[in-house]
Simulated assay, not measured.
Amino acid sequence: MDGDFLLARLEKRKMVETDKQRIDRNVKEIFDNIVVIFQTTRFIPFHKFLIQFIASLVVTIVFTATNLDESLLLKISIKDSVFYKVLLASFYTLPQALIFYFLFRKNIRIFFRKITKKHFTLSLTIAFASIVVAMFIAGLLVYGFSQTMTAHSEITTFSPSDIFTYIIQLLGEEILFFSAFFLSLKLFTKRKEPQYVLSVWISGLIACLVFGLAHLWTYDFNVIQCVIVIGLPSIIKIVLYLKTRNLWSTYLAHLFYDLMAIVITFSGKL
């Protein structure tokens, strides 16, 4: 009973707090999470992060830069069938997920937590903010600097059955992104005097760079587009992770982002 009373008072206090107080509360919460993430990363062996990053990078290069996956899967399934698309996405995500689980199964709660309604709402908000930022940067490059943007073939040829591909494949992309982030962060934890905020943001920028460059084959090696339009806006996912400490939240944000991009692309064709 006392617990319910205290929770009710806390909710009431949140309702009457000013915008400045709300901002201060969220900043403090994010900083506290930064410290927790930093200290947790410190106690996980370096070789685990290195193995995960190398494995994710190799799988990504094989998946995007070669036709090895298609050559193997075409022997057991018809191309463009739903079964084939699911297998193809699994070919990318499953090896990464299995290695991740094997390496971090004892620390799995550090990375993945139960998704809540608040996490879901935040993921949707971050996805919307990310696509607004990406569209602004793309527009600036095209109309301000006369850069050419390369279309994403999977988006322009999207069909309803492709949703299964996105659901599976984007989890693999999240593992790649955050394997780069945690590997970089682990290097910063070796300092005698930790610089929590700086370490996290530099690690986040490195993850964005890796994530952007991983799309080179998909966007015909348009480096500027991959780094600035795709990689840079992904820094918002770091904010989401710092807020929720839940990779399911960043995964949902990524899924919502891609679905919004599909809707925008097809709306422009109508």
Rank of each mutant, 00 (worst) to 15 (best):
D2F: 13
D2A: 12
F5M: 07
L7A: 13
A8Q: 14
R9F: 13
M15K: 14
I23H: 02
D24M: 08
N26K: 04
N33K: 07
N33M: 04
V35N: 02
V35L: 06
I37R: 00
F38W: 05
F38E: 00
R42F: 08
I44H: 05
F46M: 14
F46K: 11
K48A: 10
F49T: 03
L50P: 11
F53T: 08
S56C: 15
L57A: 12
V59W: 03
T64S: 12
T64E: 13
N67Q: 00
L68E: 07
L72A: 06
I76R: 05
S81W: 03
F83S: 03
F83M: 03
F83E: 03
V86A: 09
L87N: 02
L88C: 00
Y92W: 03
L94Q: 00
L94N: 01
L94I: 03
L94T: 11
R105N: 07
N107R: 10
I108L: 10
R109T: 13
F111W: 08
F112D: 10
F112S: 10
K118N: 04
L122W: 08
I126M: 01
S130L: 11
V133R: 08
A134R: 07
A134Y: 03
G139C: 08
V142W: 02
V142D: 10
S146I: 09
S146T: 06
Q147P: 07
Q147V: 14
T150S: 13
A151P: 12
H152S: 15
I167H: 00
I167G: 01
Q169F: 09
L171H: 06
E174R: 02
L176C: 02
L176N: 04
S179D: 01
A180G: 02
F182V: 03
K186D: 04
K186M: 01
K192P: 10
P194V: 01
S199A: 13
G204R: 14
L205F: 15
C208S: 13
L209D: 13
L209R: 14
F211Q: 05
F221W: 09
V223L: 10
V227M: 06
I228G: 02
V229D: 05
K237I: 10
I238E: 00
V239H: 12
V239Y: 14
N246A: 11
S249A: 15
Y257A: 14
Y257W: 14
L259P: 12
L259A: 07
I262W: 11
T265Y: 13
F266M: 04
G268W: 07
